[in-house]
Design a protein around this nucleic acid. Structure first.
Lengths: 152, 152
DNA sequence: GGTGAAATCTACCTAGG
DNA sequence: CCTAGGTAGATTTCACC
């Protein structure tokens, strides 16, 4: 359960490149490949490593517009919240959604092919939903850092 | 360069689980393992697949607080922006940073062990920086969706 | 689309503190 | 008793056909 310094460096390395072999990791961390494999299995079994994922280049997929959308709901009841959560789940272009403290209820991270597609998400998906009171979107002009590894 | 339906399903699958073997993917997509391997290599070479990364459980790492911080800079010059970008780069607890249209200049995604650690980032890291005019933080109360796969 | 050599993973075994 | 290192069989990848 407790992570020693080798676990921490192992997690840092696997967050940068999940395809590093136990051999390579062993050389980096001065440990045998078999021990690396055992530690990795333990970290997976404990759920500290949730899964391994391919990271794609959004621009090369044609997703040239990225935006954050703040959404306020009409009433703060569990009914509205559940209905809104189902909407979020159903839209693949919404890749992140968080309930926040403060004035706006939710923050959404949205990818779109162009500005018109982004506006379509706002006007044809979010605003027509009965639980949604108002939305405000801000377009990403520059991405200084994105989905960086968690500090370990 | 252009993606057919198999490429799209391949990318969707690899975003969910980067450790799927060519054999398994071939069975899912009704294609031979060698063809899957070739397509994967092509997608990597074209940069559509940027890399493979382990995804960790923030809570199990002790990072129980997550927040979004809006930052306004004092002046809109390249000097201030560069200096601020260096600050962002140097802080591992800031895992995302975007320059946005609208009133606030930047949106930061921050992980911290507790509220006091989050406040330390705001008061000891961000506010003392000469380029920073003001910050406003909103804590994540509920994560409906996080780092979902890109739509392909 | 298929094949085979090389690399990799994983379960098991042994040694040392 | 727990952690580290080594080994063999099964699996996977990848260059070639």
């Amino acid at each position: 359960m407790t992570l020693d310094s080798i676990d921490q460096r192992l997690l840092a390395a696997l967050q940068k490149d999940a395809h590093l072999t136990s051999q390579e990791l062993g050389e980096m961390l001065h440990l045998s490949a078999s021990q690396i494999g055992r530690r990795r299995q333990r970290l997976e079994a404990e759920g500290i490593i949730r899964h391994y994922a391919a990271r794609l280049n959004a621009h090369k997929l044609g997703l040239t517009v990225q935006a954050f959308v703040q959404v306020a709901l009409k009433a703060h009841g569990p009914e509205n919240a559940k209905s809104f959560a189902r909407l979020i789940d159903s839209r693949p272009e919404i890749t992140g959604a968080w309930a926040l403290t403060g004035e706006a209820d939710y923050l959404l991270r949205v990818y779109a092919e162009d500005l018109s597609a982004l506006n379509s998400v706002i006007h044809d998906v979010l605003l027509p939903h009965p639980a949604v009171a108002r939305v405000q979107s801000q377009i990403v002009m520059d991405q200084l850092k994105a989905d960086a590894p968690l500090p370990v």
